[in-house]
């Protein structure tokens, strides 16, 4: 019966916990990204993205999808592009 109910529902929905979950899910399910291994952390109005992708374009897409799904937050894209080195030493088993 309280007229405050809708407001409290809206604010719960925007709790950092759910926003982070929404961003993580979007990164996994949005076809621009399809990235399952990106860590999303929110501290205050700052959103941090961490993990690795295979190319610079993919790194940019990750940030774009996060920005779309977290309006009002400042997105810090700390995702790195995997650097592939030479094969190196073999291991004897």
């Amino acid at each position: 019966m309280s007229h405050e109910a809708p407001h409290s529902v809206a604010s719960h929905h925007d709790a950092p916990h759910y926003v982070a979950a929404r961003v993580q899910r979007a990164l996994a399910e949005d076809e621009r990204t399809y990235e399952l291994g990106i860590r999303v952390d929110i501290r205050g109005d700052q959103l941090f993205l961490r993990g690795q992708v295979e190319g610079a374009e993919r790194r940019a897409h990750v940030a774009a999808v996060a920005v779309e799904n977290a309006p009002g937050l400042t997105v810090h894209n700390e995702v790195t592009v995997v650097e592939v080195r030479e094969p190196g030493e073999e291991e004897t088993l």
Binding site: G37, Q52, V84, R85, P87, G88, E90, T92
Partner: peptide, 22 residues
């Protein structure tokens, strides 16, 4: 997984009980 290896591929030598073999 490539992000774990961070190199083009790993190489594992099987049959290494003979020190000459690998």
């Amino acid at each position: 997984a490539l992000p774990v290896l961070r190199r083009a591929y790993a190489v594992y030598c099987l049959g290494g009980e003979d020190p000459e073999s690998c």
